[in-house]
């Protein structure tokens, strides 16, 4: 189990380094006009050159990347070229909002889609068909389209919630709740539509296993077979489905945050990429990938723990 964890962790670090190099090299080619943009049109060539020197833009690729990488290792991700705010601070301020949004949405997705998937798998019949129809509707409405509709309907037309979030790190629970309610639902509906169907298939696959029949023959109640045996065997498949949904939500959150004016990582990413603020873009990409790696590692560990073959060895 320890070596399994270490191997996964090692693979995660390799992935992180690979993505850093890849992102940095793509961004390298885009930074040609950054200095000019920063100092303005009226600036002289000397001023531009000076700015380039300050930012290290005159250095060759390898030394620039090495600089960035070494300071990143020591926890220094540099400062935004535009606002001079340290990247680490900018991310630390915004991460809680995005993580809360995505975590609550994935939790909601997990609970609702498990319930729906289970009902459809066990009851079949009309329940099953309803889930299929619901899945098509859920699929057809991308999260951001739902978000737009929610804002229009609940904030603009019905005035039930404020159209723009009142959330900030120090805000009270009520503000968090009203600000996150609609974004969470917008993110979760799409995820529920696709994962409920996949969970249904995973549960049906387990219900058809031989040992389920044997358990029935031993006089074990149907409810106990479902909750104690079938759900447990279907859990690894379910967790993998949910981890992919989680990754999708991190992306979806970018647009949804923008619509609800939530000051999360997503809006930071959009501003930084539009402006070409490389240190911020690198920081955002790195943190997103770290979150993904940690979530995947957790899923692997839980799945390993659920599987006695891995656990025992």
């Amino acid at each position: 189990m320890v070596s399994f964890t270490l191997r996964r962790l090692g693979a995660g670090v390799v992935l992180l380094i690979a993505i850093s190099i890849l992102t940095y090299s793509i961004l390298f080619f885009s930074s040609a006009n950054i200095a000019r943009n920063l100092v303005g049109d009226q600036a002289t060539e000397e001023q531009v050159a000076l700015k380039e020197q300050q930012l290290g833009l005159d250095q060759p690729f390898l030394s620039r990347f090495a600089d960035w990488f070494m300071s990143a290792l020591s926890g220094d991700f540099g400062r935004s070229w535009f606002t001079s705010e340290p990247v680490a601070v900018a991310i630390a301020n915004r991460l809680p909002i995005t993580l809360t949004l995505v975590a609550v949405a994935i939790l909601l997705t997990a609970i609702v889609s498990t319930l729906i998937g289970m009902l459809a798998a066990v009851k079949r019949g009309w329940m099953d068909r309803a889930v299929q129809v619901g899945a098509v509707i859920g699929y057809a409405a991308p999260g951001f389209v739902l978000a737009v509709l929610f804002v229009t309907l609940f904030a603009v037309q019905l005035r039930l919630v404020p159209p723009v979030s009142t959330i900030s790190p120090g805000a009270g629970a009520a503000a968090w709740f009203t600000s996150l309610l609609l974004p969470v639902i917008a993110l979760a509906i799409n995820a529920v539509a696709s994962s409920a169907q996949q969970l249904r298939s995973a549960i049906i696959k387990q219900l058809e296993r031989d040992y389920v029949r044997t358990l029935r023959s031993r006089g074990i109640a149907e409810r106990e077979i479902l909750f104690r045996h079938v759900l447990r065997s279907a859990a690894p498949a379910g967790l993998t489905i949910l981890s992919l949904q989680f990754i999708g939500m991190l992306g979806g959150a970018v647009i949804v945050e923008q619509i609800f004016a939530l000051p999360g990582i997503g809006s930071l990413a959009v501003t930084a990429t539009s402006a070409g603020d490389i240190p911020v873009v690198m920081g955002v990409v790195l943190f997103t990938v770290i979150i993904v790696i940690v979530v995947n590692l957790l899923v692997d560990l839980v799945n390993g723990w659920l599987n006695p073959k891995v656990r025992v060895s």
């Binding site: 793509i26 999708g248 991190l250 990413a269 930084a272 490389i278 873009v281 990938v289 790696i293």
Partner: peptide, 14 residues
Amino acid sequence: SLPGIMVLLSVRAA
């Protein structure tokens, strides 16, 4: 394991 929109944003920046 890559978040799609983040990658697309980086590509656009670049």
